[in-house]
C-alpha cells in the first residue's frame, strides 16, 4: 500500500473528519470513495472491488457492523478497519469477532491510521482467503473463525495472525522468522520470545499436537 495505490471505501458520516480522512488517504496515493451511510456503502461494495474499507460504526441509517457482517456473509474478504468513537472493549471485541481486521478509536492521529492501513494491507498481500479444513479443525479466514472439534475458539488478533500464517500452507514448515515477520506486519513491536509465547497459546486453544515444532527450523500445522 505504501507504493501501490488501492481503492479505499471510506464510510464516515462526520463531514469535518470525513473530508480530512479523504484528503489524507488521497494524498497517500489511493483512490477514495466516501459515503456517509450504510445503504450507499453497501451498494458501492457490490459494484466496486475495494482494497480496503474504513468503516465508522454509528451511521445515520444504521450500524456499520451490519455492513461488515453483510460483506463477510457473502464471503467478501476485503480488509476492514473500524473507525469509531466507541472505546469500550466489548465493542472492540464484537467488531473484531464480526470480521474486522483492526479497530481504531477516535480521535486518532492520521499517521496512526496510515500505519494501521499499511499493516492490514501487508497481512493480506497475496494471501488466499478461504476456509481451510484440517482433521478436527476448521479455519474460516474470511470470518476469522476457528472451530476446533465443533467448538468455536476465540483467538486474539496476534494468535490469529500466527494461525493464519501456519494454516495458509498446512503441513509446510513456517520458520520462526516468518512468524516474526507476520507479527511485525500485524503492527506489533515484538520481543524475542513472542513467537514461542503465541505458539504456546495457540496449542492450548487448538490442541497441543496440531502444531509441530521442527527443531531449529520452525513450525507446521497438521
Amino acid at each position: 500500500m505504501s507504493g501501490d495505490g488501492v481503492r479505499v471505501l471510506l464510510v464516515e458520516d462526520d463531514q469535518v473528519l470525513g473530508e480530512a480522512l479523504r484528503d489524507h488517504i488521497a494524498a497517500a496515493g489511493h483512490a477514495v470513495d466516501w459515503f456517509t451511510g450504510v445503504v450507499d456503502s453497501m451498494a458501492a461494495t457490490e459494484t466496486v472491488e475495494y482494497g480496503l474499507i474504513l468503516l465508522d460504526l454509528r451511521l445515520p441509517d444504521g450500524d456499520g457492523l451490519s455492513l461488515l457482517r453483510h460483506l463477510r456473509g457473502r464471503q467478501d474478504a476485503t480488509p476492514v478497519i473500524i473507525l469509531t468513537a466507541h472505546d469500550q472493549v466489548s465493542d472492540r471485541i464484537e467488531g473484531l469477532n464480526s470480521g474486522a481486521d483492526d479497530y481504531l478509536v477516535k480521535p486518532f492521529d492520521l499517521d496512526e491510521l496510515t500505519a494501521r492501513m499499511l499493516a492490514v494491507s501487508r497481512r493480506y498481500a497475496g494471501k488466499p482467503t478461504s476456509t481451510i479444513r484440517l482433521p478436527g479443525i476448521e479455519i474460516d479466514q474470511i470470518n476469522r473463525n476457528v472451530v476446533v472439534d465443533n467448538e468455536i475458539q476465540l483467538l486474539s488478533a496476534r494468535e490469529w495472525a500466527v494461525l493464519d500464517k501456519l494454516a495458509a500452507r498446512p503441513g509446510a514448515i513456517v520458520s520462526k522468522a516468518q512468524l516474526h515477520e507476520e507479527l511485525y506486519a500485524f503492527g506489533a513491536e515484538i520481543e524475542s520470545n513472542t513467537v514461542e509465547v503465541y505458539i504456546s497459546r495457540l496449542r492450548k486453544k487448538i490442541g497441543h499436537d496440531r502444531i509441530e515444532t521442527i527443531r531449529g527450523v520452525g513450525y507446521c500445522i497438521k
Partner: peptide
C-alpha cells in the same frame, strides 16, 4: 459526541 468533533478537528489540523 465529544470524540467525533475532536477527531475531526485533529484530523483537519494534521492535514
Amino acid at each position: 459526541e465529544l470524540r467525533t468533533p475532536i477527531a475531526g478537528a485533529l484530523a483537519q489540523t494534521q492535514r
